[in-house]
Simulated assay, not measured.
Amino acid sequence: MERTFLMLKPDAVQRGLMGEILGRIEAKGYKPVAMKFMRIPKELAERHYAEHKGKGFFPGLIEYMTSGPVLVMVWEGDNIIMGMRSMMGKTNPQDAPLGTIRGDLAQQTGRNLIHGSDGPESAKREIELFFNDYEIQDWKRSLDPWFTE
């Protein structure tokens, strides 16, 4: 099973959308293996978004991501990285189809509710930034045979 890193951003937390978003992910059949409610320190936010350093929006992004609590998570599932990218919708909610998290619940790129890894390498890097091995649970769910063959 593939794993991915997901983060419900400060706007999702402040707007009370954690349950709605988590429910969609869980209903899809993906399995949570780690979750942590936290306020990201500035240094960690800068490392997480290091590929954007030097871009004009970087300081505002770091300020926003450290402005309140977030929910960081590791989820597991068959082809979950691509599946979650599809569920989230495009980065700009105006371009995200209805039925996606961003298409249904977000209005602006700068407040698009959720982050998800864009590939296996970034998933590994992001998971290692936010979680220790002992925080990630390896568990069997009795419903698993009903989601995948």
Rank of each mutant, 00 (worst) to 15 (best):
L8K: 11
L8Y: 10
P10S: 12
D11F: 09
D11H: 15
V13W: 04
Q14C: 15
R15P: 14
R15Y: 07
R15M: 15
G16D: 15
G19C: 05
G19S: 12
G19L: 08
G19Q: 05
E20M: 04
I21C: 09
I21Q: 04
I21E: 10
L22R: 01
L22S: 11
R24H: 04
I25L: 11
K28H: 15
K31M: 09
P32D: 13
P32Y: 04
V33H: 14
M35R: 07
M35T: 11
K36G: 00
M38P: 08
R39W: 02
R39P: 02
R39S: 10
K42M: 03
L44V: 02
L44N: 06
L44D: 04
A45M: 13
E46A: 02
R47I: 09
R47A: 13
H48I: 08
Y49A: 02
Y49D: 08
E51N: 12
H52N: 14
G54Q: 02
G54C: 06
K55F: 01
K55W: 09
G56I: 11
F57V: 15
F58K: 07
F58M: 05
F58C: 02
F58Q: 07
P59A: 11
P59E: 05
G60N: 15
L61W: 03
L61F: 01
I62V: 15
I62M: 06
I62G: 05
E63T: 05
M65R: 02
S67R: 05
G68T: 04
P69F: 02
P69E: 09
P69R: 08
V70W: 00
L71K: 01
L71Y: 05
V72S: 11
V72D: 03
V72Q: 00
E76P: 07
G77Y: 01
D78N: 01
D78W: 02
I80D: 00
I80E: 00
G83R: 00
M84T: 06
S86Y: 04
M87R: 02
M88C: 12
G89V: 04
K90L: 06
T91M: 13
P93T: 06
P93A: 13
P93I: 08
D95M: 09
A96T: 06
L98F: 09
G99S: 10
G99V: 10
G99C: 10
T100V: 10
T100Q: 14
T100W: 13
I101F: 12
R102K: 11
R102C: 06
